[in-house]
């Protein structure tokens, strides 16, 4: 079972992700609603995985990823965001994120992404994740 830190300023997304995480047998260690809170709680909770939004008050998700990776270079972070710009994907990956999923949240893709980072939790899938495949 993985301990997961969920970071998103949207109440409905925090609830949605919590439901998916619990359904897949993992544990939510903390729900953060800003980048600042995410960095603070990462140090306290030491989660196995972080799901990170980008557009948030106080500190955006890209900056939060940089701070977390500076604290723990082995941090495992998946961006879950509405931003469809290629440049944002590149920034996130360069900052240290290991995956990038586009909202609206697709449960199967999230489970697949977790499986790519933690192969022991991988479920059999046939296709690679395409972040643009559900746009238009």
């Amino acid at each position: 079972m993985l301990n997961i830190l969920i970071v998103d300023d949207s109440l409905i997304i925090r609830k949605n992700l919590t439901r998916i995480v619990k359904k897949t047998g993992h544990n939510v260690v903390y729900l953060a609603s800003s980048g600042v809170e995410a960095v603070e709680e990462y140090q306290k909770q030491k989660p196995d995985l972080v799901t990170m939004d980008i557009t948030m008050p106080d500190m955006n998700g890209i900056e939060a990823v940089r701070h977390i990776v500076a604290i723990d270079e082995d941090a495992k972070i998946i961006m879950i965001t509405s931003h469809g710009q290629e440049e944002m994907v590149i920034k996130a990956i360069q900052s240290g994120a290991m995956g990038y999923l586009l909202k609206p949240i697709n449960e199967d893709k999230l489970i697949e992404s977790i499986g790519k980072i933690f192969p022991e939790y991988a479920k059999e899938t046939s296709d690679d994740i395409d972040i643009y495949d559900d746009i238009f």
């Binding site: 949207s10 109440l11 997304i13 509405s82 469809g84 909202k103 609206p104 238009f136």
Partner: peptide, 18 residues
């Protein structure tokens, strides 16, 4: 209120690439 914001954020964020 949260859903209203999330839908707006999703359609605008997703559309930026286009």
């Amino acid at each position: 209120e949260s859903v209203a914001s999330e839908i707006a954020n999703t359609i605008i964020g997703n559309s930026l690439h286009f």
